[in-house]
């Protein structure tokens, strides 16, 4: 029997429910279905087109940030500064285009380049000075937020009339162009992460850094790239939100870093690195925004949102751990 035949006939290839639920994103998906149906039954309008449009508007903005956070967490690092970069990037765009009268596209590109630079600084400080990224980016959280407020001054001015709001947030009726950007980013990042050698290096770097290094992977460069991508996506999401609301306020994105980490964790990304998926991150994002919106729709005090979010985070990790243990146990019995 040829080797490939052995593979095809091995028990692992057979469909098994235990294996299906061993996927970290599976328990998040189950929770999502329960939450969506639950809110629909409770409110009767949760899955209506009107509310669907609201969800499709807010999901990409958190989702793009969470996507970068997920990639960085897979590489084994954190970024707590994404909420501040989310605010700082559109503020820089605003200052350059309105206060200094620079071409709006140039302003956007420069602002995004600075977001990437912030990611580079986060990475360089973390790796170069060998301190936890938790600390390095906690520092950046305060620095970037403070600069965002300082650059626009006390009274933010309205946006420049030639701002390309349609490019980032054109209203198609049921959804905005931001959703298309989000889908495109999910596809590209998902492909790189799960289908290319660069993705393999990311998982290896986060999963077992010493082994990755010994096998010749430049783990510094891998981490640095992940920091830069994460910061870039946070800045891009900030620009998208400001384009939608046309309200360039330096206070936007407060608490977003924790929601983004929550989306990643609920979707099965491990805090320790080496585990995670783009699909999981998408499910986590939809779940968080659905609970946020569903509580409002059911006329429950919005203050309950964080309680629900907190319970969800703990529950999803507990579920993942137990379901996986069960799956591995079952698999050993099977063979």
């Amino acid at each position: 029997m040829s080797v490939s035949k052995v593979i095809m006939n091995s028990p692992q290839r057979r469909f098994s429910t235990a294996n299906l639920f061993a996927k970290p994103e599976a328990s998040a998906f189950a929770m999502l279905v329960i939450v969506l149906l639950g809110f629909e039954l409770w409110t009767g309008i949760f899955l209506s087109p009107m509310n669907g449009k609201i969800l499709l508007t807010v999901i990409p903005e958190l989702g793009i940030v969470a996507l970068g956070v997920t990639v960085l967490m897979i590489a084994g690092e954190f970024d707590l500064s994404v909420g501040s970069v989310f605010a700082l990037t559109p503020m820089l765009m605003q200052v350059l285009s309105v206060y200094y009268d620079i071409n709006i596209w140039v302003s956007i590109i420069v602002a995004l380049a600075i977001a990437v630079l912030i990611g580079y600084v986060n990475g360089a400080v973390t790796i170069g000075l060998r301190i936890p990224s938790f600390i390095a980016t906690l520092g950046m959280l305060f620095v970037a937020r403070s600069i965002a407020i300082v650059v626009v001054g006390g009274t933010p001015r309205p946006m420049s009339p030639d701002t390309p709001t349609a490019f980032f947030a054109y209203d198609f009726g049921m959804f905005r162009s931001s959703l298309l950007w989000y889908i495109a980013l999910l596809a590209v990042v998902g492909y790189v992460l799960h289908r290319t050698n660069a993705g393999n290096w990311l998982f290896a770097t986060g999963g077992q850094p010493q082994a990755a290094k010994d096998l010749g992977i430049n783990t510094r460069r891998v981490k640095l790239s992940a920091f830069m991508l994460c910061s870039f996506l946070a800045g891009l999401a900030g620009i998208i939100q400001v384009m939608r609301t046309r309200a360039p306020l330096p206070s936007i994105g407060g608490g977003l870093e924790l929601e983004a980490i929550a989306a990643a964790v609920i979707g099965g990304t491990a805090l320790t690195g080496g585990v995670g998926s783009v699909i999981g991150c998408l499910i986590g994002t939809i779940l968080i925004r659905s609970i946020d919106n569903g509580l409002v729709m059911s006329r429950v005090s919005a203050e309950w949102f964080r309680t629900a979010l907190g319970v969800m985070i703990v529950l999803s990790v507990v579920l993942n751990v137990y379901v996986q243990r069960f799956a591995v146990h079952g698999r050993h019995k099977e063979s």
Binding site: W201, F203, A204, G207, Q208, A211, A212, L215, G216, I217
Partner: peptide, 17 residues
């Protein structure tokens, strides 16, 4: 020197995919 979460095949080819 292996990544525990990754498959045998992926581990064999880490860095030399």
């Amino acid at each position: 020197a292996m990544i525990p979460q990754m498959s045998i095949a992926r581990n064999i080819f880490i860095g030399r995919e």
